[in-house]
Amino acid sequence: MPSANAPAPKAGRIARLLCLPATLWITVLSLVPLLLVAGISFMSRDDIGTLTLPLTLESYSRLLGFGPFGFEPLYPQIFLRTAIIALATTALSLALALPLAFAIRSLPGRWRGVALTLVVVPLWTNLVVRTYAWQLLLGPDSWLAAASASLGWLQPGEGLYPSLGAVLLGMVADYLPFVTLPLYASVERLDWTLVEAAADLGAKGWRLFRHGILPQIWPGLAAGTTLTFIPSLGQFLVPDLLGGGKTLLLGNVLQQQFGTSGDWPFGSAIAVVSLLLVGIASALQRLRKRA
């Protein structure tokens, strides 16, 4: 019988055994497939579309805009659009989460928990459902579209989607809870005596916010940025349902390559590049944290 105070090496062996099955599972179904994606991104396709050798950088050069017919800015444009929309989504979500976090903080104690739960509950509703609901809310029959039409912003009978604005709205509504939670954690710990001190020294308005509050909620803002920016780079459902054909993002192009187009090397190259973007974003995040 093993003694009560089992020596450390033995405990370590048991712990390692316990970790083994799940680690193997994730390695085989997550790391190996990623290597496969990286490998396929360098392969070519023959006339009927099957993967073959030789290894080539063609997919990557196409992504940079160097197609068979010379320079085409289509893909660099999509990259840029994806980055801009991801940035805009992040900035808007942060701007909206800020008043929300402060409002929740100003509630009496027991209501704060309720309000925070209410922020999270929509996340448990499937994104497909929440996104098509925006089609109903912004469509030609909706009162929002009717109101915009009567204000002269829209042609009567037209909807507010598909449009870039609808994509942004759908993405901001999706990511708002992800930003609000970490931001609230920072706002809750805010030391108001520092804000008071700044106010006593004559800071007002923006200066008060910039020097009294912003440095204190920085960690929450940074966490919210990561939680929004990274997933919005790979988003394809919201632009698919709310953007129409005009607002193609990286995620949509990726999906096409594995659906209708069947160009796996090109799709894999997009996946590798978006992973690199994610890696860069989180590396920057880590540097920030250390600084």
């Binding site: 179904l29 994606v37 997933p231 790979g234 990726l254 999906q255 996946a271 978006s274 992973l275 994610v278």
Partner: peptide, 15 residues
């Protein structure tokens, strides 16, 4: 956890 879900999806498709 950090893998964008679309990348995870296509990587398992390829596997």
């Amino acid at each position: 956890v950090i893998l964008p879900d679309i990348v995870m999806a296509i990587s398992i498709l390829l596997l």
